[in-house]
Design a protein around this nucleic acid. Structure first.
Lengths: 335, 335
DNA sequence: CTGAAAGCGCTTACAG
DNA sequence: CTGAAAGCGCTTACAG
């Protein structure tokens, strides 16, 4: 590879001056600068980041440990948001994907620390609790879409409760009084928090909470695919007093609900109103009527997490990031 | 940060010996090694990759330029496959996501070259033609899920034609003679190739090709979301001689087809058989009956691409990667 | 405005 | 089996 010295020789100048030009030091004569730039061009010189880094002791790298973020639909927005802010700050992201495996996590962390990362984002593809290795705290760190009880790390989480409220309130505002809720797996964090939001929305509207209207969807694994809303709908349809609206725990459920209701002669958007969570772009806009849903704020969480690394803010608390409401037509009847 | 010299001082030994221990040089006495390892532990020493790299002139980094791979459902498998092989080879991936923007592409490339990457994967989230900057060829490179006419680079593409054939043949084998095909946007590469596969499968079965059975789905953008199979189904249902089976250009179309056919009193899996492409896990397993579909071979393309970087194989040709068939029930009638 | 010296934290080469 | 010297490609700090 061509080095600063090769350029200096070619330009007939000391290598220190080449360094100045590369670093945009204003204290170089126009003439000299032009000569150096030309030599750089001719020799196709590229500064060596590793050498630069050794002297100024800054790697310019932010680590991003992803717990399956990369392989899950739209969780990648977390990465995208993180990259956006990192780039704005002149840093690059080094991404390592792991899969709930503590040994690989430790390896990833070691590798990143050997590369002298200036900050670290640990992100999960779904909202859950994690255990972070102690070593993670040796570098400025943030958690995105996950939290830890055992360590004081700044944390960014989706505001599940607000989302539950908004998804419910939208139906309340359409005059519904019997609003059902098909919940996710009982062991994931989102389930309880969204249900709490549902209760709050009902209460604010002066509507009674009816436990018969809360039914659990089936998720074959914690993360939830494949899954089925079939038994949930069956339960709801057997009620004496059927719901006129349903909040679906996720867009996959909503998709199935469109089908399942047809068996009972009910059509979404005509006989029954629906809202949901996630805003999966493969599903929500492609249903008829379009699915009204609370969008997972992955992009914004990714941004907020990296922004925090660069802020002087030493706060290690938890920040809740709101779900945007994506209004299509499924929450309306006969629009 | 603690350096090799600090460790040497702590262990009462020369720093060269510390280097030997860190690099697992067998020519160190057990006793000395133990002493050094203990000092490393106590001081929490971590080798500095940048310094190591300066001497041995190898960065250990493979660049991965992603054209929206990260933000698209399941395209992330490309990244995962690439990371898997890179890690096996003791390398790490440095991922940069760009969005069809030539300036950002150039920036990404500059950044990676300054970091002295040992290889580069350029991957697109959908199968398309790209223009690669000349500089990319200054380092061993591969294209994954995209191709270039202007440069001789090893290329890994999904075998669209085989997928079209398999998706069609499966229906032929069930005895269908009138098989429709709902195609993607005419300008994307996959469209023509999959159609060619469809024609070949018909021909091999001795079935006539009927242009009336090939209808175009609507894709609002090149990548295709949101999209609609509504007009396609309408066209097919108006035919004198309706199809008894349909090959859907993508799983979103298939999802809509399940609904749309109900309007004509037809039920997938009872009255009409269906196959599709992509294997979107949000959709395919969650439909009833489960959607039989050709899975995009993203994971395998990612692996193959990086494997090629480490092979001594200087071949710059194109390799077609097969779509696995994911058999569920939609291709069967009354199973 | 330009340059010579020292050093970042390692490994490679060679001695002993 | 262990060590002293040189150098990777830069930047920092100091002179002129």
């Amino acid at each position: 590879m061509v080095s600063i010295k090769d350029v200096a020789k070619h330009a007939g100048i000391s290598f220190k001056t080449v360094s100045r030009v590369v670093n945009n030091d204003p204290a170089v004569r126009q003439e000299t600068r032009a000569k150096v730039l030309q030599s750089i061009e001719v020799l196709n010189y590229r500064p060596n980041r590793a050498a630069r880094m050794m002297r100024n002791q800054r790697s310019g790298v932010i680590g991003f440990i992803s717990d399956e973020v990369v392989t899950r639909p739209y969780a990648g927005e977390l990465l995208l948001g993180a990259q956006e802010i990192a780039n704005q700050q002149g840093r690059v992201l080094m991404v390592v994907n792991i899969e709930q495996d503590r040994r690989r996590l430790q390896q990833a962390l070691d590798m990143l620390l050997e590369r002298r990362i200036e900050g670290l984002v640990f992100a999960s593809y779904f909202h859950r609790e994690v255990e972070v290795p102690e070593e993670m705290l040796s570098v400025p760190s943030v958690l995105a879409n996950c939290f830890s009880r055992n360590a004081g790390v700044a944390t960014f989480l989706p505001d599940e409760c607000q989302a539950g409220q908004d998804a419910t309130r939208l139906l309340v505002e359409q005059g519904h009084q019997r609003i059902a809720f098909i919940t996710l797996h009982p062991e994931i964090v989102a389930t309880g928090l969204r249900l709490e939001g549902y209760r709050q929305a009902l209460q604010q509207a002066g509507l009674a909470f009816d436990p018969q209207l809360v039914v659990q969807g089936e998720c074959l694994n914690e993360a939830g695919e494949p899954s089925s809303a079939a038994s949930a709908i069956e339960t709801l349809m057997q009620l004496d007093h059927r719901p006129t609206a349903i909040v679906c725990g996720k867009d996959e459920f909503a998709m199935q609900v469109y089908f399942l209701l047809l068996r009972y002669g009910l059509q979404v958007g005509v006989d029954i109103a629906i809202t949901s969570f996630d805003n999966q772009l493969l599903i929500a806009p492609n249903l008829t009527p379009g699915l009204t849903t609370m969008a997972l704020p992955h992009l914004e969480m990714g941004r907020a997490a990296v922004r925090h690394l660069f802020s002087s803010d030493a706060d290690r608390g938890t920040t809740l990031v709101p779900f945007p409401l994506i209004e299509r037509e499924s929450h309306l009847l006969n629009p």
